[in-house]
Design a protein around this nucleic acid. Structure first.
Lengths: 223, 223
DNA sequence: TAGATTGTTAATCGATTAACAATC
DNA sequence: TAGATTGTTAATCGATTAACAATC
């Protein structure tokens, strides 16, 4: 396989958002291939599997470097490794969950972080009844100790699952503590003008609504 | 306010996916405006609030009808009502949760369904230890009783939070039972060729990865 | 070598923005 | 009426697809 792909690897400056949003999907499919001991795949085969054009796959991957080989295709393991690097899976980012309600619990108990090389380090809450309890092997810490904690344990990512009323203040607090990114599940979108914390707003409800829209549309439009 | 918007309301046939994916965001912002007793808003004001162009707002809304009034703007309540209709909020769809693990529980306890006019009707699981327990006022039912249940209670939406190994078979089973849409949280994407069940695959991990990508990119690219 | 498949350019398609006439 | 703001067309921009020469 080609090893000089690194030539083009530097110019990550201007990869389009559309491409970036597709990368995690490649990551998932490549992992699945790897699990099934498939060592090599062509853009054509991957195209059939993922229901996107082969052209798009080649175009997307080439934004980051020449990962394939003419006449051969792509080495699945190598490509998976490259995409993992690009997506920061190899960075071992640390995360804390702010808000240990049902969603916080569900996230803490899921393999979602581990699968992506993110290390869940702690859970926080404000409720005295919740603080001190154990969730998935973590003892829930008090929000009062957040500053102390982060000064001793650098936190890259904060996962926000608090009520929306405290989203803004919590986000500002986290920003001041040097957190690099906020994964926000609260239904209030975070705006931190001037800050360079990366914000990822998740809206699970939006996805339910597009589903309802499609159902609605298929089942006889207006009535 | 204009009442003849209905003229154009019929041609929902070909609204672009980009527009549809933005509708839930309008829905959220309009509800917030309504909660703050703001009765009227222009595309320019909404533009500042939502950080999108006024042009896009007018373009988007006009796919469904003339909801505004020249020289006035949009009546928030009226517009909210219209968008709710378009998104099926007024349809009172019924939903069941398949898989009563941590995520199923979290969803059942959240206002996510209620806020969008979806009626959560039941939870199911296969684990004898979970069946019969109570979650957020619902007694978890056995998957063995799914066929019986759906024959007595028509289900519009199934929320899938099962392990990925059983996603395919469960999806096929649900499809056979006449479910209209599947909201799939399992990390295996559903494919039901030939079926006309609407599938909405949710990948929370993808969102975490794009966050990691951005953090990675900002904090000094390759190393 | 011949065959296969990439990397990459050019063509097409779709989505966003700008502009302004229509109109409340 | 004059001012404001929509609805809508035209222009721009970006993303996808097709095509094929480069190359393993």
């Amino acid at each position: 396989m080609k090893t000089d792909g690194s030539r083009r690897e530097g110019n990550r400056d201007e990869v389009s958002p559309a491409v970036i949003k597709r990368l995690p999907r490649y990551f998932r499919y490549l992992r699945e291939l790897l699990r099934n001991d498939i060592l090599r795949i062509s853009s054509g085969e991957l195209s059939k599997l993922m229901h996107v054009t082969a052209s798009q796959i080649r175009q997307d991957l080439n934004c980051f470097g020449g990962f394939g080989q003419q006449g051969y295709g792509y080495n699945v393991k190598y490509l998976y490794g490259k995409i993992s690097e690009i997506l920061g899976v190899t960075q071992n980012y640390s995360a804390v969950i702010i808000g240990s309600g049902n969603l916080g619990r569900a996230l803490a108990s899921s393999p979602i972080f581990e699968k992506r090389g993110v290390k869940l380090a702690a859970l926080f809450d404000v409720d005295p009844d919740v603080i001190g309890t154990e969730i998935s092997g973590y003892t829930v810490l008090s929000m009062d100790t957040l500053e102390k904690y982060t000064s001793e344990n650098p936190v890259d990512i904060a996962v926000l699952t608090t009520p929306k009323e405290v989203v803004r203040e919590t986000a500002e607090r986290l920003s001041a503590l040097g957190v690099k990114g906020i994964w926000n599940f609260a239904s209030r979108e975070i705006e931190l003008p001037g800050s360079d914390v990366i914000i990822e707003n998740v809206h699970m409800g939006d996805s339910l609504m597009t589903l309802c829209y499609e159902i609605n549309r298929k089942n006889g439009e207006n009535r």
